[in-house]
């Protein structure tokens, strides 16, 4: 039986914005993710997906509620959480003046991958992501596609059991996006727990074992695709999403 790897309870985030005043970016979010599943956070831009994932990855501190990764609390044990987590988003750039190999070595070592195995692990990642030809080149010299591969490699190089992909296909062309989705499925098949956020319905449909629909910082529904279909009597995820977000069904 799969075990709970990520547990989120009543997670909230408020911040002050000079233009909008006090903003509730995330309100009382609850969900769990189990090992070997891809859990999708589906929501429009500004729905609270990134803020939720940033709190789980300890980049942001929750205003209220808790989140645990492998039982480690994100506030009290942030280093342990980060050690067991790989965080990837379109906005997490790489150090332009380091090479791909140096970047992977740095992330493996600082994220506590055993020093004696680091070299082999880095070469394994270079091989797996097809980086051999560019491993010695500085990141700033690489194409967008190659940078993205290095970015994923640095996310998984320390072999964390939990991976977060925050809108990973933003800005990628179709082939690169499909390549990335394939890579994520492979990681799931290896037993990793994957939190995946997107606003693209087809992506969520294809990849996610369970989907949480998030809107205005709140989870509106959370189930597998079949469960959501059964609950709403809609077949397409797009219609299911509209059903939960607007409260109305899409016109036929």
């Amino acid at each position: 039986m799969s075990t709970i790897q990520v547990e989120v309870q009543g997670l909230s985030k408020n911040f002050f914005d000079q233009a909008r005043g006090e903003v509730n970016a995330v309100s009382e979010v609850d969900f769990v993710c189990r090992s070997g599943e891809i859990f999708g956070l589906l929501g429009a831009n500004g729905a609270g997906k990134t803020t939720t994932l940033r709190m789980i990855s300890t980049v942001l501190q929750p205003s209220d509620g808790t989140a645990r990764v492998l039982g480690h609390d994100v506030v009290r044990e942030p280093v342990e959480v980060r050690r067991n987590l790989g965080f990837y988003s379109a906005s997490t750039a790489l150090y332009p003046r380091l090479t791909a190999r140096e970047t992977l070595t740095l992330f493996a070592r600082v994220n506590k991958y055993p020093a004696e195995s680091t070299k082999d692990r880095v070469e394994e990642m270079i091989e797996r992501f097809g980086l051999s030809e560019y491993a010695g080149a500085r990141i700033e010299k690489l194409s967008t596609g190659m940078k993205q591969k290095v970015s994923i490699a640095r996310t998984v190089v320390h072999d964390p059991p939990v991976l977060i992909f925050d809108e990973p296909t933003v800005g990628l062309d179709v082939l690169n996006a499909l390549d990335l989705q394939k890579g994520i499925q492979e990681l799931r098949d290896e037993g990793k727990t994957i939190l995946f956020s997107t606003h693209i319905m087809s992506e969520a449909e294809r990849l996610c074992d369970r989907i949480a629909i998030i809107d205005k910082g709140r989870i509106r529904a959370c189930d597998g695709l079949e469960g959501l279909r059964a609950a709403t009597s809609h077949h397409y995820l797009e219609d299911i999403f509209v059903h939960y977000v607007t409260g109305n069904d899409t016109p036929a």
Partner: peptide
């Protein structure tokens, strides 16, 4: 400016 701050802050160290 380079968007590497978030990358750095996900490293498993204080």
């Amino acid at each position: 400016e380079r968007n590497t701050w978030e990358t750095t802050s996900t490293l498993a160290t204080r």
